[in-house]
């Protein structure tokens, strides 16, 4: 698919904004560090050791996490919106967050009810990551088995939503029986968090993220064909079942790892593809995919900078910020252009 316009300038501008946002993001925090020292610490020649430590082991990983989370959620949202031909689809329609929440809920709150095995697990960050991954993986597996049998793509959408309801119900039952402290811990996980990732964790995150991105890039041609609808796509020689499988796996890898490491981050996956479509005014995925990548990363960095509450010691829950900042932007875009397109 060729588009008549060239998109070099918007891409350059976006890349520039990304770099600026990145620098702003790492220069903000509870400890104020002058810009010059920040650059120095990036290249390991800082004059102040504790500043360098903060930058290298706290702010840099957090900024990279923001980039991975924003771009990953944006891209998986784009994949889902095209696959399900539904502008309301996001990365979580397949029940991935629900699965992750269930895993985490079982780890945090399961101990009081089931005792035994659950009580022996120490609630560390890794156990939460593993529980979230296992939970989303199990839901994904079920969705994949179902999607291999079901011919109708819309049925998969409904099945994903049903999984969401089931897990939400189980989580409410669990929370009914758990202590206030456990409940608070679970709710805190639900706020989402970009910080607290070590370089090693970030590396694992990045590896899985890369596989998801590669699968998304491979799907570009199929996604463009799907813009015509499944029957046309089939008449153009597209293997629907195979493409659908690759798209679902890519989304699950991206959304699943993001939820595991950063918690359920709302809104980004749904809104970023819409914002990008409005700005670039195209549906060509060869343009949209890199644009969503840049745009998602930018928005996430901005949200995180705001969550820092510059010059204060408090950090707001990132999950609230993404919706607070993002939702009005989408409303404004839609009112201005008066058309929801995908």
């Amino acid at each position: 698919m060729q588009t008549s316009k060239t998109y070099k300038i918007p891409f350059l501008v976006l890349a520039l904004i990304l770099i600026i946002c990145f620098i702003i993001n790492i220069s903000l925090g509870s400890v104020s560090i002058p810009l010059k020292s920040i650059f120095n610490s990036l290249f390991g020649t800082a004059d102040n050791e504790s500043w360098q430590y903060i930058i290298q082991n706290y702010r840099l990983p957090k900024a990279f996490t923001a980039i991975l989370v924003g771009s990953g959620l944006g891209i998986s949202g784009l994949l889902m919106q095209t696959l399900f031909r539904n502008p309301l689809a996001g990365p979580f329609v397949l029940g991935i967050t629900s699965g992750a929440s269930l895993g985490v809920a079982l780890i945090i709150m399961g101990a009081s009810i089931f005792g035994g095995f659950f009580a022996t697990i120490l609630i560390s960050k890794w156990s939460i990551v593993i529980a979230a991954s296992l939970g989303s993986f199990l839901v994904l597996l079920t969705v994949l088995i179902v999607s291999a049998k079901v011919r109708d793509t819309m049925a998969i959408l409904i099945i994903g939503l049903m999984f969401g309801s089931i897990t939400a119900a189980i989580v409410s039952v669990l929370s009914y029986f758990s202590s206030a402290e456990q409940l608070q811990q679970y709710i805190f996980w639900g706020f989402g968090s970009l910080g607290n990732l070590s370089w090693y964790e970030l590396f694992i995150f990045f590896l899985i993220y890369c596989i998801g991105i590669i699968l998304s890039v491979v799907s570009i041609k199929g996604l463009n064909t799907l813009l015509l609808g499944e029957n046309y796509a089939k008449s153009l020689g597209l293997n629907i079942k195979q493409s659908r499988l690759i798209i679902i796996i890519a989304t699950s890898l991206l959304a699943g790892t993001i939820t595991a490491f950063a918690g359920p981050i709302a809104f980004i996956g749904l809104a970023i593809p819409h914002m990008t479509r409005q700005i670039f005014s195209t549906s060509n995925h060869k343009i949209l995919l890199p644009a969503v990548f840049l745009f998602g990363a930018i928005v996430m960095l901005i949200c995180d900078s705001i969550a820092q509450l510059p010059t204060s010691d408090y950090t707001l829950p990132i999950n609230a910020i993404t919706s607070l900042i993002g939702a009005p932007v989408v409303i404004w875009l839609l009112v201005r252009k008066r058309k929801m397109m995908f």
Binding site: T3, T82, T225, L228
Partner: peptide, 15 residues
Amino acid sequence: QIASKNLSVFELVAL
């Protein structure tokens, strides 16, 4: 109907 009407005529024919 085609799924996305946001495509330009050229893009659609190119598919």
